[in-house]
Amino acid sequence: MEHNAAQMAENHGGGTKEVIRVTIILSVITLIELALGYAIIGMPPSTLVTAVKGSILILMMAKAFYIVAYFMHLKHELKNMIMTIVVPLALFIWFITAFLWDGNSYKNLRNTYDRHHAEQNSIKVEKKEHSSGEKHAQPSSDHKGH
């Protein structure tokens, strides 16, 4: 990228080649995500499933990066301008951590101190058939929440 500022205003970023490259990357990442999604269908919650879901989230962030950096050309803007957008978004780190932590804590407290709630949650209901027959119905009757 040997552009100077004047050129950058006119023509930033790579040409059609870059578009094709990013399209292929995005498609491949999506296919991997879907493959991972298929792989965990019907599996009861476990460490492995959590790990796969974590990998899907990492791939999601990679896709977001490619869309913002190349399709939206943010990578080719001036650094100061990039920072005015990226730095405020760092709030999300706190935002996500604090709220999910709180949600999880609420669940644990309620299960510990509100026996009625915990019992209600372990009652099984008759499975309603929605327009379909049996598909990958997983007998996970021995699993009662966490």
């Binding site: 709220f99 999910l100 949600g103 999880n104 669940k107 309620r110 915990a118 598909k135 929440g145």
Partner: peptide, 23 residues
């Protein structure tokens, strides 16, 4: 999305998306 995540984290059970979205 964070509201959704928080509620999901605070709930004991959640529907399986592969059961819901399968048509």
């Amino acid at each position: 999305l964070i509201a959704y995540g928080t509620v999901r984290f605070s709930t004991n059970g959640w529907p399986d998306p592969n059961e819901v979205f399968q048509s």
